[in-house]
């Protein structure tokens, strides 16, 4: 689980933020901003929406400082972020479906070695975009954020069996997508 470093300092900052210390709240945001923004970015697929969601999540945290336990803050933030992403996706138009790996621009002979950062990002973005929302959330939290299946189930409000099934399906789809991409390049 990608818990920010030095949780003790985080707890102290959270307590100070509860007492009304804005600088302490800024510290809390700095500790968890990557967790929130990157999760949102993977789930909604674009930075402007991810930033809007991050803003909403941290404002919600500020309003609920006295209700959120320091020990479960990461889990709380993941859950609120996933829900906010769900709301955003529901409001917005559906994304264009990803049908062909040909959308990935590359003509290198050995993609595994020469693949660039930009390509990796593009592969990640497109492969996540083709997944249904629940499978995407489960895969992002489990495989990219490194949470346990139990934590993912808790955050998504599902059973572990459901989460395992979702992750399994998502992995198969992504593997097929990436394999098609590299087959084409050989």
């Amino acid at each position: 689980m990608s818990i920010p470093a030095d949780p003790l300092a985080g707890r102290t900052a959270l307590e100070a933020a509860r007492a009304g210390d804005l600088a302490a709240f800024d510290t809390v945001m700095r500790q968890y901003e990557r967790l929130v923004l990157m999760t949102a970015l993977r789930l909604v697929g674009n930075m402007p929406d991810a930033q809007d969601i991050s803003q909403d999540v941290f404002l919600k945290l500020y309003r609920n400082l006295n209700k959120v336990e320091a020990t479960s803050l990461s889990s709380w933030l993941y859950r609120v972020t996933v829900n906010a992403c769900h709301d955003t996706r529901r409001r917005h138009r559906p994304e264009a479906p990803v049908e062909f790996a040909e959308q990935l621009p590359s003509d290198a002979a050995d993609p595994q070695e020469t693949i660039t950062q930009a390509e990796r990002r593009r592969i990640l973005e497109l492969s996540l975009r083709m997944l249904p929302e629940k499978e995407r959330a489960a895969l992002v939290l489990r495989d990219l954020e490194g949470l346990s299946t139990e934590e993912v189930a808790h955050i998504l409000g599902s059973s572990e069996v459901t989460v395992r099934s979702q992750i399994s399906k998502a992995r198969v789809k992504i593997r097929d997508f990436v394999e098609r991409y590299f087959r084409r390049r050989k």
Binding site: L22, D26, M29, R30, E33, R34, L37, M38, L41, R42, M47, Q51, S54, Q55, F58, L59, Y62, I115, Q117, R120, R121, I123, L124, S127, D143, L144, I174, V178
Partner: peptide
């Protein structure tokens, strides 16, 4: 590949912008 892409750092300005808006 996906993990490496996910772990790539992003422009710190994105975080700064979020924090500024929240504050």
């Amino acid at each position: 590949i996906l993990r490496a892409a996910h772990a790539e750092p992003i422009d710190p300005a994105h975080y700064t912008a979020v924090r500024a808006r929240v504050m």
